[in-house]
Amino acid sequence: MGEVKISDVSLAFDKENGESTLALDNVSLEIRDKEFICFIGPSGCGKTTLLRTIAGLETPDSGEITLDGERITVPDSKRGMVFQEYSLFPWNTVIQNITFGPRMQGMSKGESLERAEKYLKLVGLEQFRNSYPYELSGGMRQRVAIARALANEPKVLLMDEPFGALDAQTRNTLQNELLDVWAKNQITIVFVTHSVDEAVFLADKIVVMTARPGKIKKVINVELPRPRDRTSSEANELRHKLLRMLAEERRN
């Protein structure tokens, strides 16, 4: 199960001059098990903050987030995260990066290796098993980062603009691969993006956020059948609608 319930979460950051900025303002949302959710919104709207709060990397000032009824206070291995920046440990090889999580769970060397090989295969990088991250392209690094997050077999996979730094073609490929992974692993995915195209192609549900302070403006159910056609007229229509909403937020 991977049900995330966000109830009345507010979070402010202290600035250097003693004032504070409200990043999240009374956000409530329910994410169902095995759902693919995309957060989209103008930059600085707090979508990354919300994701980090679900991860346990930030603590809300008020309200709470639960995973399957359990309150989230600190990071743990039930929620995997893929960061926007390259976050692979550069001193570890690909396979060592992927075994990191299982090892931290106290798994034996053999077991964690077995687990890692499985996910390495899933992202199709078996031949780079013993390479160091600097030897990989950006797309390959993010594939390894996904494998590393999945190796803990989390209930929820949190992704913070994971394909933001990649070129358009690599991005499309990785989006397709991610959908395959999602179909195979049956987990909940919460995905932050600033790309409307990406959200429309991936999500079951798109959560549009307002400009700062971050609130939920609208939740849109994406009814497009899968596998999706990026250029279908329905997809276009939805993109159009989303872009209009975002433009509206930028004006405010």
Partner: peptide
Amino acid sequence: IYVEAAKVLGCMTSVPLIRHVAFP
């Protein structure tokens, strides 16, 4: 980013963080 990545992978206390992340 490395410390946070390690934390979400389940490496949460100072000693393993120092050993596996900060030291290397």
